[in-house]
Design a protein around this nucleic acid. Structure first.
Length: 205
DNA sequence: GGCCAGGTGTAAA
DNA sequence: TTTACACATGGC
């Protein structure tokens, strides 16, 4: 019998996986830094992203970030890899945020998933990460950890949208609209922490 | 030394 | 629509 998303949520919650994590799991949730981190972590370990974020100290607000020159940015984000494509994409995205929304606060309030997906370098996962952890929207992030954990439960889909629907639709039945953002933010956080913890005990493969 | 990580864009079948 | 490949560093 296949478990529902809510049943998996409750199982993970019992493990107290987020006790050492920030309030909304993603470091500095609700800030522009999440936008930068979401792009930098693409196919990259968070450990390497942290090195880049440290190099970017003082530039992790929208207005400061757009003053960076591309070649300088490339050097700063070198530790998180793919810097030749991530640097121009991050700068373009930041300028588009400024041109379209004016401020980061207005971006948080007004941006849509479709607008994010039009940006070069933002795919479905990055869009959802930004919406959830930078904008506090009720959007569930699906990443490789999510697929790995669900696979253990015998749940496998083909498309990103199928994973997202499986997780979101069931939780929507059990949480109020106001509680949904926190439930999604927590759920994804628990999935990642569970997956990380497990791989220490027993490497997959 | 080889494999892989909190993906995405592009080109070709 | 699906598959294949480039992109790059650092940890194990």
């Amino acid at each position: 019998m296949q478990k529902s998303a809510y049943e998996i949520y409750n199982e993970l919650e019992k493990l107290d996986l987020l006790k050492d994590s920030p309030k909304f799991w993603w470091p500095n949730a609700g800030t522009f830094e999440v936008v930068v981190g979401a792009v930098l972590t693409q196919n990259t370990t968070w450990r390497n992203v942290e090195k880049s974020l440290k190099n970017l100290e003082g530039f992790l607000a929208l207005d400061a970030f757009v003053t960076l020159h591309e070649d300088v940015l490339k050097i700063k984000i070198k530790p998180s890899g793919f810097y030749n494509q991530k640097a121009p994409r991050l700068l373009q995205l930041s300028h588009n945020i400024k041109d379209t929304f004016g401020t980061f606060e207005n971006f948080q309030k007004s941006v849509s998933r479709d607008w994010l997906l039009e940006q070069k370098g933002i795919g479905e996962e990055s869009a959802d990460a930004i919406l959830c952890y930078a904008c506090f929207r009720p959007e569930m992030v699906v990443d490789s950890y999510t697929k790995r954990v669900l696979k253990e439960y015998g749940i496998v889909f083909r498309r990103y949208s199928e994973y997202k629907y499986f997780l979101e639709s069931d939780l929507k039945k059990h949480f109020s609209q106001e509680a949904l953002f926190f439930a999604f933010a927590k759920f994804h956080g628990m999935i990642v922490e569970y997956s990380k913890k497990k791989s220490v005990l027993k490497p997959l493969h």
